[in-house]
Computed example of a mutant assay.
Amino acid sequence: MKYTKLPNTNIEVSKICLGSMTWGQQNTEAEGHEQIDYALDKGVNFIDTAEMYSVPARPETQGSTEKVIGTWLKKTGRREDVVIASKVAGPGDMVSHIRKDLGFHKAAIEDAIDKSLKRLQTDYIDLYQLHWPERNANFFGKRGYEHEADEQWQDNFREILESLKYFIDKGKIRHIGLSNETPFGLMRFLEESKNDLPRVVTVQNPYNLLNRKDEIGLTEIYHRENVGLFPYSPLGMGTLSGKHLDGVKENTRLSLFPQYNRYSNEEAVKATREYKKLADKYNMSLTHLALAFVNQQPFVTSNIIGATSIEQLKENIESIEVVLSEEILEGINEIHNSIPNPAP
């Protein structure tokens, strides 16, 4: 395994992060525990979760993933061996079952943190992230920003940081991050942090061969402001494993939850076929090509991989040993330039 540090902290994390959103819905508690044990045995020390998980969000399964992690922590007593990241949900109809008020004001965040801590059976969360902005922004399958003239959101970046500082001072969380965020949002948080407030250390955004839109504006900020990208969906919900090229496979995320179709449009499939040809040319799996590409990006702190089976998890973790040559990277960029960001 390879390691780095959460930017501007002394917390060492593995370059591979164990994603968990299937635990409690697609995976049982026992399977979740098995995945954690396997990942730690391979050197992974970083686990990402969220209060809304498992996915898709449902009242019956809300918080189930954190509970799986919590029972593992209680069973093993290995809290100091893992770095745990979780997230507080923003406003949205799909998560209206979590709280009546889903805004990022102090009372809502306190409710979220305290319930997450209880489910996780721990006293603190290492990295606490805002799952998506309160304001209208281009996230979850949207390529561009569309302004809403009647938007009710009021600028509250400083207020949010003041609330998060309170919970850091209380020892309930250690560091903060964002998710599904834009250059505007990240820069506003960074500017406000100069007022003796907590500084964002990571942004968890989608990033993969089919969606490199962070490179348009955010990666410059990552480099210049020392903020780490914490990418999710590095395999495009399984699309970049190549398993769906001849039709969606049964009992997979895309077959069970067809609403997750942002990586299945005609151009995305076309690009995936080209990446598969490139992987075949160099005698590697498409999975390893896709994950190694993300692993090698200098602005990436830790690559969030997920799996529903140990076999998948094994291949995903092994990607850390794959190093793409300049020739392969040139081939990737040729495909990207001809079919740029086909998945929103």
Rank of each mutant, 00 (worst) to 15 (best):
G141C: 07
L278Y: 09
K276R: 13
K42E: 13
E31I: 06
I176L: 08
R135Q: 14
L178V: 02
E321G: 04
M1P: 13
V227K: 04
E267H: 11
E66A: 02
E315S: 11
K106I: 14
K75E: 14
E66S: 03
A292Q: 03
Q35I: 00
L178T: 07
R143K: 15
L164K: 08
P59G: 00
G228I: 07
D155N: 15
A50R: 01
Y263R: 10
H131T: 00
G238D: 08
A137K: 10
V68N: 12
N27H: 10
E34P: 02
R199E: 12
E151M: 11
G70R: 06
N156R: 10
M21P: 01
G43M: 03
K2T: 03
P231D: 02
Q25M: 12
G90N: 04
V88D: 02
E80H: 14
I84C: 04
Q26T: 04
N8Q: 12
L73E: 07
V323C: 01
I168W: 07
D123T: 13
A39V: 06
P133I: 02
F139M: 08
E29L: 13
C17Y: 04
S302Q: 11
G90S: 05
R199A: 09
Y275A: 03
Q296H: 08
N208P: 05
H288Q: 13
N211V: 02
D123I: 05
E250H: 10
G141T: 03
I47A: 04
E31F: 04
E110S: 08
E274D: 04
I69Q: 07
M94I: 13
V294S: 06
E151Y: 03
A30E: 15
I339Q: 03
E274Y: 12
I69R: 08
L178C: 08
Q62I: 05
E192Y: 11
R253N: 04
V13F: 06
G306C: 06
G242F: 07
I84Y: 04
Q121K: 15
L73H: 05
K2C: 00
I328S: 05
H147F: 13
N303C: 15
D41Q: 15
E311G: 01
R199W: 08
I305V: 15
K276H: 07
E266F: 07
D93A: 15
L256C: 07
K100C: 01
G144V: 03
F104R: 03
T122S: 14
T9P: 09
E60L: 11
S193C: 11
D111N: 14
L229I: 12
K170Y: 11
V323E: 14
G171E: 08
A112K: 00
G43W: 06
I125W: 03
F257E: 12
G171Y: 06
N180G: 05
K74L: 15
R262E: 15
Q154L: 11
K2L: 12
F104V: 02
L6F: 14
N251P: 04
D126H: 09
P342E: 01
I11S: 10
D37I: 12
S14N: 10
